[in-house]
Design a protein around this nucleic acid. Sequence first.
DNA 1: TAGGAAATAGGTAAATTCCCCTAAAAATCA
DNA 2: TGATTTTTAGGGGAATTTACCTATTTCCTA
Lengths: 219, 219
Amino acid sequence: MKNNLSVLVVEDSLIFSEGMELILKQHTAIKEVYTAHNLKDTIARIRKTAIDIIFLDLNFETKEYDGFTIAKKVKEQQEAIKIIVLTQYARVYVYEKLFKECKVDAYLDKQLGTNELFLALEKVMQGEIYINSNIESIMNIKKWWKISKREKQVVPLLVQGYTQKEVADRLNISARTVENHITSIMRKLEVKNSVELAAKYVLYVNGNRENLEGGLSPF
Amino acid sequence: MKNNLSVLVVEDSLIFSEGMELILKQHTAIKEVYTAHNLKDTIARIRKTAIDIIFLDLNFETKEYDGFTIAKKVKEQQEAIKIIVLTQYARVYVYEKLFKECKVDAYLDKQLGTNELFLALEKVMQGEIYINSNIESIMNIKKWWKISKREKQVVPLLVQGYTQKEVADRLNISARTVENHITSIMRKLEVKNSVELAAKYVLYVNGNRENLEGGLSPF
DNA sequence: TAGGAAATAGGTAAATTCCCCTAAAAATCA
DNA sequence: TGATTTTTAGGGGAATTTACCTATTTCCTA
């Protein structure tokens, strides 16, 4: 591995970027740590300086762009730059977008230690893809990839508490067709009924944080 | 407001605590910023130094204690110390525990800006309770407070895809009783059916991060 | 200790979901 | 273009959920 890496932290929250900088500087292979707080500064930096790795947040205050936009723009201009995505809210469905569309190299939950941060850095510099998530999560996303376009329209409505008939009315199709879609979805996701489907959907959309926050259980 | 505040950051992640320290030092009313990375250091610090405010994380690597434990211990010993809880995963059900049991003074999601951090600090020093969450979330928690002990046992089973009959078998009660419990829960939570109930439950347990991460929608 | 939930369980009937099929038009893709 | 998948829709029937009821026992709290 190179031992004079130039890294760039792209993150609009000061609290986090200042901390990141201090940590990254402790790694012996890192020569220089730059910071950018928005899209414009990021692009300016990669043009001016030879950057090896970008640590990129997905959340930005502005609605004009987000981490996805930045990742794509960076890879368009300089494909060789490795991108490690850091995100506070590890929602499973973002994986697809990140790896297929944005070509990022690693995905890390911000609730991470210095060790894991450096491990990701080393893996990525060796050309590997790194994800700090459990296998189960990955398996669950793959199930959702099988869900068709129309099926994806049915689920949110069902989960809001609409009956199959009501969903049918909203989509201007037969209740029978909706029933078939739901059956198909349940088979693909390997769930027993609509109730379990609703739970799985919310986990998928909203992220699963089981075993976090001290393993607290609400009931 | 006092203008020579001593604050303590209790947080085991270096990345975050280093950043927090830098930010807090920028506030004119803050005289001194201390850091503690575990329960022992926290208690030692409040005994040695007169602390006004603690910024407390809920997540700790260890399973021996968590933010809740620390908050309780601190308030037991020195009730006057204000506690501002910072958490990465804003799960709604923790509110109850935090405010009723641990007597914390503020609750902030880590995805916050400097402004909000300082606003919370000022509100808390004026003796107010501060929560950076929307009213809807609060209303939704209150609905869950009405759910009885037995009802709380039924919900997780139902959400796992078990039928009312199967839930009844597991709890060794009549299917009819389970049915009554579910009806009661649906009325209390104002949901239309079990499917919507499942969705609400997962949101409640796992936290709602709608409108975060750039308002991305999966479908 | 009296009142009020909570937990228990049932009757009846309607509404809804779920299952196992078939089948054709439309869209997609190789 | 030919093959595959998606979307559409239905028949028939079983299983399940939901809606309104009543009613007893237990438990908790003011």
